[in-house]
Write a protein that binds this DNA or RNA. Sequence first.
DNA 1: GTCGCTAGTGGACGCTGTCCACATTAAGCC
DNA 2: GGCTTAATGTGGACAGCGTCCACTAGCGAC
Lengths: 217, 217
Amino acid sequence: MTASPPGTETPQAERRRRPRGAVRDGLVAAGLELARTGGPDAVVLREATRMVGVVPNAAYRHFAGRDELLAAVCAAAMAELAGRMAAGVARVPGPPGDPAAAAGRLAAIGTAYLEFAHAEPGWFATAFAVPEQHAYGAPRDGSPDRSPLGQLRTVLDELVDAGVLDPQRRDGIEYPIWATVHGTAVLAGAGPLRAVPDATRRHLQDLTLSFIGGALT
Amino acid sequence: MTASPPGTETPQAERRRRPRGAVRDGLVAAGLELARTGGPDAVVLREATRMVGVVPNAAYRHFAGRDELLAAVCAAAMAELAGRMAAGVARVPGPPGDPAAAAGRLAAIGTAYLEFAHAEPGWFATAFAVPEQHAYGAPRDGSPDRSPLGQLRTVLDELVDAGVLDPQRRDGIEYPIWATVHGTAVLAGAGPLRAVPDATRRHLQDLTLSFIGGALT
DNA sequence: GTCGCTAGTGGACGCTGTCCACATTAAGCC
DNA sequence: GGCTTAATGTGGACAGCGTCCACTAGCGAC
């Protein structure tokens, strides 16, 4: 992450010693570190190159510009969110098809989302700060959709299979549900409600999840 | 908004000819214009001073720095949102206490919110981009709360009075409702769903409002 | 061994936010 | 009226940012 200690080798000899792709990966890692505390605006190209121990222009060998670096950092932050959601879902026991387990998985998805937004506000803001013209779409190949929306859809389908959710109400309901959780995360994380005490925040989370539960049945 | 045409007077004589507060108001207006198309990041101090026809440092006589100017622009954008919401609510006829009218006013609030986010994405993003340390709280005097949250509370109280909403469920329900609408506005305005066609967007709005309606009854 | 490509360097440009010292104007007081 | 004083705008400067151009060291292919 930092420059190699001087003295042992001349900087010139050090030039091409990095493994292939190390600079690119290092820049994304550095950007992720910056975004963690300062959000997307803190991802400044020169600072990232400084952390990697390279001159600013070197970044332009791997990214078209600052926006493309930011886009890569955003994708990494989104992957981190998706990973924590998947971990939260996996922690709920019970076979697919069991109504209680399916409901528990839905709650786990929402909780993981809200917890991530609170624990990592910088990353959360970054995940949704994808610069214009660099949007990443859903995977078009056959790989399973591990994005937040994809995971939500999976659990909702499971709820239908388990007989908890009326199939007639299934179509499109992922959007209001996602919006409810996301709105709570935004308002309580970076928005007007960012300064509320911890107990209140937890109460807001419960209110949100039970609001969704009430709208489903 | 622009510099006075040259020729008629020397710039020196023009110096203190501005009415008191004109520069400050002009800077906020210029910032609002910049934010309209580019969001909060487009509010750049030097550009705003250029539009007002004044040297960059003049801004520091009215604001402690760029963040304080941005905070003023954010407040103006939030006021614009509140104004459009109030206008939408006022357009719904019917006496307070009438159940249908109260429900219509709730829908009008949500619709105005979503329409604003779509019609003015720059302002909408700016309204919620208040820089840290410059947050504006609710009015502590007796004046009625015209903020989005305040207007929502008023309508929800009306729904309770009209017998539409169970008083037992009233407490704190403004937050999930606000979050649902806000989340939809964010996701469909600046987030991953920003590029959806117009008909889909309208469908998302309807889904959101009926989702809230379903959760209330 | 030579060639050509890749990835890093060095220097520069214009832009930004911000600080300092200075000049001018308007307002208040006698 | 003339003087003082605070408010307000000016001019010049600085560091930091993203980005462009020309140059070069090192590696792999022939």
